[in-house]
Amino acid sequence: MHTTQILALDPEFGAQLGKGIGAIALYAIVGLALILAGFYAIDWTTPGKLSDLVRTGKPNAVLITSAGLVSMAFIIVLAITSSASDLTAGLITSLVYGLLGIIVQVAAVRILEWATRINIGEVIQAEKFTPASVVVAAAHVALGLVVAVAIS
């Protein structure tokens, strides 16, 4: 005897799906805003016009900017996961921790550059790869991880 079973979705499935799609869109907006804010904070505190240096392919500017963006993503992701069960709290937490992360990261990287006597303006404007840019990029990623883990 063959029994046919009909699969039915939970009556709340549509509402849950809509809420999930909305949450993704809102987190994407907050995340993009924070990443842009992080980029402009790095640009503002770095000698030279960072967007121009990246656009023209200065290898050190590209490396340092990329590391800064990745480190901001760490902070944003951990802020989201630390309060994933509550959308409003998650969005607020992401925004507050993200902004704090930008401030801490930029300040700490500038202090590290001062301590190591790296002339960041000279490094990011160089036409050729400069090993010192790896130190600055690593500082961005390391500090992003530290701030991200502190959030969770």
Rank of each mutant, 00 (worst) to 15 (best):
Y40T: 12
H2E: 12
T116C: 07
W44V: 13
A139W: 01
I64P: 02
G22Y: 03
A126E: 07
I103K: 13
A126H: 12
S133H: 01
G22N: 13
I35G: 15
S66W: 02
L78W: 10
I24Q: 08
A138C: 06
V136R: 03
Y97R: 13
T93A: 01
V141A: 08
V149N: 10
I75R: 02
G14M: 10
I75L: 00
G48C: 03
G38P: 07
V147A: 11
L26Q: 03
W114S: 12
L91S: 05
H140C: 12
I21E: 06
W114E: 10
I75A: 04
T93C: 01
T88A: 15
A23R: 09
A41Y: 02
L99Q: 06
I64M: 11
N119Y: 04
L17I: 11
T93E: 05
T56P: 09
G48L: 03
D86G: 10
N60V: 12
L17H: 07
M1L: 11
L99H: 01
L95R: 07
S66E: 09
V135M: 05
V70S: 06
G38A: 11
S94A: 13
G31R: 00
L87S: 09
M72E: 10
Q16N: 15
L9N: 12
G144D: 05
A15D: 11
A67E: 04
P11S: 14
S51L: 15
I124M: 08
E12W: 09
S83F: 12
A28T: 11
V141P: 00
I124R: 05
I111R: 05
L145Y: 10
G38R: 07
A28F: 10
L143G: 12
I102P: 06
V62C: 03
S94G: 15
S66Y: 04
I111D: 12
A8V: 14
I102M: 08
I120W: 01
A107R: 10
L112S: 03
V123H: 08
I92Y: 04
N60C: 06
L91A: 02
P131A: 07
G101Q: 04
Q125V: 06
T81K: 07
T116L: 15
E122D: 08
G121R: 00
D43L: 07
T56D: 15
L87V: 14
L9D: 14
K19C: 04
S71G: 07
S94I: 09
E12G: 04
I21T: 03
A139P: 00
G90L: 05
V70Q: 01
T56I: 13
V96S: 11
L63H: 02
G38H: 09
R55S: 15
I151Y: 07
A41V: 04
